[in-house]
Amino acid sequence: MTSEGLGRVEDDAVAVLDTPYADAGALIEATGSLDALASAKVVRRTPLDETELLAPVPRPRALWGIGLNYHSKAKRAGRSVPTEPVLYLASPSSVSGPGDEVRLPAEQTAEMDYEAEIAVVIGRTLDRADEADAWPAVAAVTAANDMTCRDVMKRTGWPVLAKSFPGFTPLGASLLSRDRVPGPDAIGVRSWVRGEARQDSTSADMIFSIPELLARISRYAVLRPGDVVLTGTPAGTGQDRGDFLRPGDTVRVEIDGVLPLTTRVRA
């Protein structure tokens, strides 16, 4: 999504499209996929580096997350591998876009952290679904930075409070349609902080695969088109390193096939 509407990335340019949808989330809610963009008329083309990119799903119906879902993270933290996913909902008002500045809520936290994650956008309703039906119900994937105040989580016991500060869920900078993803177990995820590589893993290291995670959520709550599910983060977070975010820091998250997601921290 750009400031001018929906667009399609074409090499080093963005083809702005003639479409009635305000954002990709609205398109997916209405049609279940990004397919309609393939035949949309191109209104204009703008250089990618001159285009303002926004969160592709700025107002998800629901925003799900999982607490511990990478073997590397469990090993680094010295924790047992869970037999049930630790699930939570965060406030959709926490969503921000690529390049946005996110305020460090210093009055609440001294442990603001980053979490590079694969975000899944649901395209078809999942209600008590089987794993075999879960991946085909995905419309697209994108990058997420599931920012977390670790001390707020310890103090309150509520992930939703630790993760719902304004801007704490950056999404973007583009969507990759599911049919262009090699598979749910073949998605790379990486992060950099202050230009230093921090996380480097793939979805193959997940404790609960993406299809299993979606199926498990659907046993308890219906997943609908436009919902966003964050799928966990690998080892290398600030919590693992004892090095939390500070004003002036830049976090860069990369998911295979998706434009980089950059977030700046301000005082």
Rank of each mutant, 00 (worst) to 15 (best):
G232P: 10
S39R: 15
E111T: 15
L213H: 01
A38Q: 11
M147E: 09
R59N: 13
P58D: 06
E107T: 13
N145G: 12
D146I: 14
G188Q: 07
I217D: 00
G257T: 03
V42H: 06
T109A: 06
S191V: 11
A106E: 12
A36K: 05
H71I: 11
S33P: 00
L176A: 10
K73Y: 04
P247H: 02
R124Q: 12
A186S: 15
D227S: 05
V138Y: 01
L48S: 09
I122W: 01
T51F: 04
D130V: 07
A139R: 01
R124C: 00
A22N: 03
G7V: 06
P92Q: 12
S164F: 14
V42F: 05
A197L: 15
D249K: 08
V181F: 11
A197Q: 15
W192R: 15
D113I: 12
P211E: 03
L175C: 11
R45G: 01
G32I: 00
S96Q: 06
A22Y: 01
P98S: 04
D133L: 08
G242D: 07
L230G: 02
S201M: 03
V14T: 12
Y220P: 00
K73P: 00
S201F: 01
A26N: 02
P234H: 03
T263C: 10
T231M: 08
G242V: 06
V222H: 00
P92V: 11
D227I: 05
T142C: 14
G183A: 12
P60I: 05
S218R: 00
A90G: 12
P98L: 05
P56N: 04
P85L: 10
Y70L: 06
L6F: 07
A215C: 07
D243M: 03
A15N: 03
D130T: 13
S191W: 08
L17F: 09
E52A: 14
L48K: 09
V81L: 14
W158T: 12
F208N: 03
T51A: 12
